[in-house]
Simulated scan of single mutants.
Amino acid sequence: MQTYLLALNPTDSVISGFLPAAGRLGLSVTLLTDQPEVYGPPGALGPDVEVAACDVRDHRAVITHISRHGQPAAVFTNSDHLQTQGALAAEFFGLPGKDWRAALRTKDKALMRRHLAAAGAEPVRSVEILPGQSPAACVEAGGVVYPCVVKPRDGVASEDVVRAEDPAELLRLCAEIRARRPDAALVVEEFLPGELYTLETLGDGRRLHVLGGFHTRLSPPPHFIEQRLTYVPGHPAPVREQILEQLALLGVGFGSCHTEFVVHEGRARIIEVNYRAIGDHGDLLLAELLDIPLFDHILATHLGEALPESLGARTGRAARIDSPCADRAGVLTSAPGAVDRADGDVRLTYRPMRPTGERHPLHRTNRDYLGILRTVGPDQDSVDRAADAFLAAQRWEITP
């Protein structure tokens, strides 16, 4: 069965998750990308994977390319940037997929806020600043409250997401982001207090499975770098139901979804919805922790298969993800290599995210990650001890 996978740059989710799953399902994959050269020479991804050049940000180019090769079995993407394009292509060919309207609502942060408010959810004060508009005029007209958060409307990975304490700081931050992204629309919204969590879901359009979620530890303000994710097998029922109700209002319920939210005084309020699997090894951790063929299930929904009533997920274990970050610009001169280790009943998997010898600026996003450590064990105490001991024994040296 011929399946098309839309992608930009290579990710661990695609290389280590979805492509092996496609092989297990007997699928022939054409990976459509605007960066074919970064995927290596022909055959580098396996005998059943072809890499083809395509302007994947344009749904018309995607549909035209696929139409030259006959009716596909599925069109799929795990990219934040390509969900609407993938959904439109799947709909064009009459294939199972996400509602393109829901994909657009979740990608466009201003549209998400407007839609949730219009549907009756508790509103979040927000202002959209389009390219060419005056941030000062928009902020004044929108009645921004402080502290607030400014972010690109279509951004990902906490890039250029910054907290502002007062009007002067906000206008300065808008100017700095505009200098880097002159064509980007911005969103300024009230800062939502509370503990940050995620909810991970998997659906087939009829049945929705909740896979648990994570409690997120962030870097100190004003930036929002995710430094640690601790697995939460089940959020309190009132919290879970509040988030599921908001996802239903957005039209989310097909394939995988990674939702970030805060809980404050019993209220659960969405920060953002990423209508794809959690990244930065979170999906790989879930597959290992729950002992389920997660990537196979996600692809199967796009082939039109119903999810089982029970996924048979293993329970009673704990896990966390740690992401050591660069704290300065420079050359990474010393760092640990890949590690796969069993420490009693605890399994540790470390993967470098940056090669030694390369110079990098300081991004203040997950592009500053030096590596990712996944730790799975029988209980949280043993997981925490093993992860803390591993991290304490490592050295990452950056030369300015």
Score class of each variant (00 low, 15 high):
residue 200 E to F: 01
residue 188 V to W: 02
residue 209 H to F: 09
residue 173 L to N: 05
residue 214 F to V: 00
residue 205 G to M: 03
residue 186 L to N: 04
residue 181 R to C: 04
residue 235 H to R: 13
residue 214 F to P: 00
residue 214 F to T: 02
residue 186 L to W: 04
residue 191 F to M: 13
residue 236 P to T: 12
residue 239 V to P: 00
residue 258 H to F: 04
residue 194 G to L: 05
residue 181 R to H: 15
residue 204 D to H: 06
residue 213 G to H: 10
residue 263 V to A: 03
residue 247 L to V: 08
residue 164 A to M: 10
residue 185 A to H: 03
residue 236 P to S: 07
residue 245 E to K: 15
residue 219 S to N: 07
residue 172 R to I: 03
residue 246 Q to W: 09
residue 187 V to K: 02
residue 170 L to S: 08
residue 216 T to H: 08
residue 253 G to Y: 02
residue 245 E to P: 03
residue 224 F to S: 00
residue 183 D to I: 01
residue 217 R to Y: 08
residue 231 Y to A: 00
residue 162 V to H: 05
residue 164 A to Q: 07
residue 183 D to A: 15
residue 196 L to W: 13
residue 258 H to Q: 09
residue 158 S to D: 12
residue 231 Y to D: 01
residue 194 G to D: 06
residue 161 V to R: 01
residue 176 E to P: 07
residue 168 A to C: 11
residue 244 L to V: 07
residue 181 R to P: 02
residue 181 R to W: 12
residue 245 E to L: 11
residue 177 I to F: 09
residue 162 V to Q: 03
residue 202 L to T: 09
residue 181 R to G: 00
residue 217 R to T: 13
residue 248 A to T: 13
residue 211 L to E: 01
residue 197 Y to A: 05
residue 211 L to P: 01
residue 254 F to S: 05
residue 254 F to I: 03
residue 191 F to S: 07
residue 198 T to N: 11
residue 170 L to I: 12
residue 208 L to P: 04
residue 264 H to T: 02
residue 187 V to G: 08
residue 172 R to M: 13
residue 161 V to F: 10
residue 230 T to Y: 05
residue 192 L to I: 15
residue 202 L to D: 06
residue 268 A to G: 14
residue 172 R to K: 12
residue 262 V to Q: 04
residue 171 L to P: 08
residue 161 V to A: 13
residue 219 S to F: 09
residue 209 H to T: 02
residue 186 L to A: 11
residue 203 G to I: 03
residue 218 L to F: 13
residue 207 R to P: 06
residue 258 H to T: 07
residue 205 G to C: 10
residue 252 V to R: 12
residue 220 P to V: 07
residue 205 G to K: 04
residue 230 T to Q: 12
residue 175 A to C: 12
residue 232 V to I: 14
residue 169 E to S: 12
residue 232 V to T: 13
residue 267 R to L: 13
residue 195 E to Y: 07
residue 215 H to D: 05
residue 167 P to I: 01
residue 200 E to A: 09
residue 218 L to R: 15
residue 173 L to P: 00
residue 239 V to E: 09
residue 228 R to M: 09
